[in-house]
Amino acid sequence: MGVRNLPVEPYGLAQKKHPSRQPLSWKVVAAGVAAALTLLYLVFTATKASAEYYLTVGQLRAKGPAAYGQIVRIGGRAADGSIHWNAKTQTLRFEMTDKNGSRLPVVYTGVVPDMFGYARDGHYQDAIVEGALQSDGVFKASQIIVKHDARFAAADAQATAQAGKGSGGNP
């Protein structure tokens, strides 16, 4: 019972010596709130600025002219035999297709990812193209990402992401 009378808490004593110094917890809270608000603002504006829709070919088609010029990511794969590469102009043309068979002509200028044109069982790899639909109905891609199926997708963290990243998509 005697223990209770002992100063168990050394900092308790220190604070008694300086009664004028109030704990600064409110300053800490204020700093925290300020930081949180700044973060919220940063996140909000950045999210708005860089948001992009992930659509399938069919979903983009369904949007019609509303999709012109809007930056989107389209998932699907190149239709069989549709890939044409012009080395002179460094231009790649192909048609994206999805499970339901919708088609979308795509044009892309730049380096084509190594695995893009690799066909297995007669089909090309699944891919994601980033870019915008132009008013002529052709999708202008700024980046091509090749999706690998399970056996390519090692449990690594970095590599295959950029494996697919066409260098054309550099910020």
């Binding site: 504006t45 950045a46 999210t47 600025a49 860089s50 992009e52 992930y54 659509l55 990511r73």
Partner: peptide, 14 residues
């Protein structure tokens, strides 16, 4: 109901 992602610019900015 729509998948919307953020690009690399988001992370750079924040």
């Amino acid at each position: 109901g729509a998948k919307i992602g953020v690009g690399a610019s988001y992370y750079v900015q924040v």
